[in-house]
Computed example of a mutant assay.
Amino acid sequence: MQPAASVDSETPRAAATVVLLREADTGPEVLLLRRHAKASNMAGIYVFPGGKLDAEDSTLDAATHLDQPHATLHASLNEPDTDGPIAAGLYVAALREALEECGLLLAEPLDAGAPLDADQARALLRAGQPFAQVLAALRLRLQTRHLAPWSRWITPLAPTMGTRRFDTRFFVAQAPAGQTARHDDEETTDSVWLAPRKALEQYRDGAIDLAPPQIMSLAHLARHASVASVLSAARSQRPPLILPEPFDHDGVRVLCYPGDAMHPVRERALPGPTRLHYRERRFTPEAGFDALFD
């Protein structure tokens, strides 16, 4: 077994993703958005809302528009080598992308009793107004307390899907009550709430396409019986750093995760299988689909 040839050695771009959850009769459901079929990266793939960190995300006036100071957010992220403003900016990026991509606004009015208009905030953002100006115009404070750091994924040097590399922090959060998630019909063309296992079954059956971070994250989420369980687990752990190791073995693309015999990190970072094989346009564990939940 030999490592796959590197096709891209660019420095990973800082990014943030928010896994939005809601409670259903059968347990938690997760929001997935389908990226546009002509997108430059991850075209047609169902993903969690998210995107790259913008410079303005790290310069937002924390005293006015954040419910926690930079120092608290930096400590919660648990990345000592990441600058405080950048750490806070990752929270802001996750909340900004949630508003832009699916219309969900995790914020509160600065003025007691004032209404919260997520549709207006999204319209202003999509019209080109900087996020800071939107928050100032509508007098809003972001609810960073609702975000719990979940994991950190860094695209390998030889990406399997797409060509860009990202250093993405995954957060989990309960979707705000009284708001409706809607894709934007530009960057994303479909939105769906699914139980994590149901999403993976649809992927197995070819109904939707998923990337490996989503596959492994959904398998992790499928082990929880409630949104509260997910949030509690996230807040009681140190977010694992996951840098997949790609290999080619007998003509099959393989992705290994921490704890696998072929990965340099010996300690497991995730439940479930430690490697995925890419066969017939699907990533699956070597032992089959059900191994995602073992």
Rank of each mutant, 00 (worst) to 15 (best):
S6L: 13
V7E: 06
S9R: 14
L20R: 05
E23V: 02
L31V: 02
L32Q: 03
K38S: 10
F48Y: 12
P49H: 11
P49G: 11
K52A: 14
D54C: 10
A55E: 13
D57E: 02
S58P: 02
L60P: 00
D61S: 11
A63L: 12
D67C: 06
A71T: 12
L77K: 07
G89P: 06
L90S: 02
E100V: 07
L105A: 04
E108P: 01
A114E: 08
D119E: 15
R122N: 07
A123M: 11
A123S: 13
L124S: 02
Q129C: 00
Q129H: 11
F131L: 09
Q133V: 03
Q133F: 02
V134M: 10
L142S: 00
T144V: 13
T144Y: 06
R145P: 03
R145A: 13
L157Y: 07
L157D: 13
P159M: 09
F166T: 03
T168C: 12
T168N: 10
F171Y: 13
F171G: 12
Q174A: 15
A177I: 02
A177W: 01
D184L: 02
S191I: 00
A195G: 15
I208N: 09
L210I: 09
R223S: 12
A225F: 01
A228K: 14
A234P: 05
P244R: 07
P244Y: 09
V252P: 04
P258Y: 07
D260H: 15
V265Y: 08
R268L: 01
P271C: 09
P271A: 14
G272Q: 09
R279W: 05
R279I: 15
R279P: 01
P285R: 06
L292W: 04
